[in-house]
Design a protein around this nucleic acid. Structure first.
Lengths: 207, 207
DNA sequence: CCCTTTACCTAGCGGTCGCTACAGAAAGGA
DNA sequence: TCCTTTCTGTAGCGACCGCTAGGTAAAGGG
């Protein structure tokens, strides 16, 4: 309390916490929250159960850290696309295009952890946590689209909420398809089709 | 063997097999294959575990019957739309529109059992069984679209496989959104947007 | 009536779940 | 050197998992 950073007393941790968290992320990403057991986790993390509990709390807290680190490391392409592109169309198009690559990257499990890892989960709070993140994503889409409607880059009658939900549905569908085995190329072609639905000039049909 | 239909010997079953199967369907639909325990099933079916095993085999076999009956009872709108509509566009548009209603019907759990019930399932064969059904659905879409390309109802360059996968992705996304709480009206608007991507006349941009 | 056949109920099997008590090991402070 | 602090490994807790043995109840056949 008085001094800060008591410079580690006692026996030092014998494993790399970041690396262990990464391995846990891969396991949860692949199999989902509930289907990944503590025994699975201790095996892939290379540590004993007491070390896991000492370092991360419990299974839910570990999953919480996994989701947080996942969002920053693998889910950030969406935020960047929304922030960096000049129009909602460009942002969503880029986001979906990058998802096609990301969701099929052989370096890690397929699809999106935040979409699939708590799909059929008994723990209601874990389900709710990921659902809230998905809803936050939709809200970010809607906000970006709304800005384009306000600026005139999209037709005045455009329903931002619906267009955001459409983009979210395509994204979630792509995640499922990736987990079902679709290739990056196949998903990229789907994105190309999906973007044809976008109202691309202020004289469009509206909605 | 010699005579047929030995007209029930022994004590008759004390529960309605169809009704029990229906209750099991609701449970699996709501919570998924793995998260639905035998104890959950016996409770909602109103029978003891030995009766369940005697009537349905084991958990996998029961789930198999559930999927089969679900496909006929709740998943048939897709087959009908593909069979009855004059064009692939009309068929897919109707299919998605009916899905918006079906996936949010308060009479039963939200979304589609075949899409979500084995999402994070440890049993690989159960996962594979539903994946194969989804792939069969995509193949049916592709076949119907291919017929329209051949007949000239769709532009010659149209990629039937991609268009089918696009429709499947939207459908799967809608299922997820329904489970996340989207209303029938919201999903219907998403369908309206999604169908704008459809190549609607033989002078379209192709792909 | 008794016998056979089938279904039901109670109780509990071996296994895995998430999690932890406990004792030993490895560091710094006195 | 000894104590305190923190981490590690073994071993196992109570609860639940899918599933079933064994005894009893309810039907038809003789």
């Amino acid at each position: 309390m008085t001094a800060m950073a008591t410079r580690q007393r006692g026996r030092p941790r014998s494993f790399d916490r970041e690396k262990a968290l990464h391995e846990a992320t891969m396991a949860f990403w692949e199999h989902g929250y509930e289907a990944t057991s503590i025994a699975d986790l201790t095996r892939v993390m290379g540590i004993g159960a007491p070390s896991l509990y000492a370092a991360f709390g419990d299974k839910k807290a570990l999953f919480g850290e996994v989701v947080e680190s996942y969002a920053g490391r693998y889910g950030d392409f969406g935020r960047r696309a929304l922030a960096e592109e000049g129009t909602a169309r460009a942002a969503i198009g880029r986001l979906l295009g990058e998802a096609a690559v990301e969701y099929t990257d052989p370096e890690h499990p397929r699809g999106c952890l935040m979409i699939s890892a708590a799909a059929n989960c008994t723990a209601a709070d874990v389900r709710a946590a990921l659902r809230e993140r998905r809803e936050a994503g939709l809200a970010a889409f809607e906000s970006r689209i709304g800005a384009d409607v306000a600026s005139g880059a999209l037709p005045p009658g455009t329903d931002a909420r619906t267009l955001a939900r459409y983009a979210g549905a395509v994204l979630q569908g792509m995640s499922q398809q990736a987990r079902d085995g679709a290739s990056a190329d196949e998903l990229a072609k789907v994105v190309e089709v999906a973007m044809r639905a976008w109202p691309d000039r202020p004289a469009g049909r509206g909605a």
